[in-house]
Amino acid sequence: MQSGEGGWSTYRPSKTLWAWSIVGASALTMALGFTWGGWTTSGRARVMTDIAVRNAKADLVAGICVHNFVTAKDAQENLKALQAKSSWQRDDFITDGGWAKIAGIDGTITNAADACADQLVKMKELPQSGGDAAVTDS
């Protein structure tokens, strides 16, 4: 029998080769996991949580803001005035009108006035009294 006839069954890799194989497989697994596998670091997960909380607060306050706006007296005139404003002035109009102010919350909620103004501008007309504010696309 010649020295090369044993094939894979007789192959014995060195400890160095085993070590580098483990390092390479680990690096490849981590690279694939973080890019395509959906893995994330705890810091990134914390940032994503903070963004989700901020967006949820803004959506909640925007819904309350729409209700406050629609149920206020002179709502129709205020809606016309809001629609006449440019997009970058609308959040100031909502904030100055006090519709985005929630009792018990100091300060303003980030993006709440913008979301409220966006929902109101999409309305073609105000809902009838006693009904919920329905948002319609224009």
Rank of each mutant, 00 (worst) to 15 (best):
Q83S: 09
S26D: 10
T16L: 14
A112N: 07
L17E: 15
A25Y: 12
T29S: 13
G63N: 02
I105L: 15
L79Y: 03
T110V: 13
G38H: 08
S9N: 13
W88K: 13
E5L: 09
W39Y: 15
M1L: 11
Q2M: 11
L32E: 06
V53D: 10
T108C: 02
A31N: 12
G7Y: 05
M123W: 06
M123T: 06
K124F: 01
K73Y: 10
Q89C: 00
D50A: 09
D59Y: 00
L120V: 05
L17D: 08
K85E: 15
L126K: 08
W88F: 14
S9Y: 11
V61Y: 09
A19Q: 04
D106W: 02
K101I: 04
G24Y: 10
V47R: 05
E125F: 01
A103P: 05
D114Y: 07
A133F: 01
G33V: 05
A75L: 07
A117Q: 04
G38W: 09
V70Q: 00
G24F: 09
P13Q: 10
G6I: 15
W36R: 09
R46I: 15
E5T: 08
I105Y: 12
K73D: 15
V61K: 02
M48P: 00
R44E: 15
G98D: 10
Y11I: 10
S14R: 13
W20E: 10
A112V: 00
A81E: 13
Q2G: 14
Q128I: 03
R90M: 14
Q119L: 08
L79K: 07
A31V: 13
G6T: 04
M123V: 04
A112C: 02
T35P: 06
R54I: 14
G104S: 11
C65G: 01
F93E: 09
S14H: 13
Q128Y: 02
T41H: 12
T49F: 14
S42P: 00
K124D: 12
V135L: 07
T95V: 12
D92H: 04
D74V: 05
S3P: 06
N55D: 14
V53W: 03
T10N: 11
T35A: 03
V135Y: 04
I109C: 06
G43F: 04
T95C: 03
M48A: 15
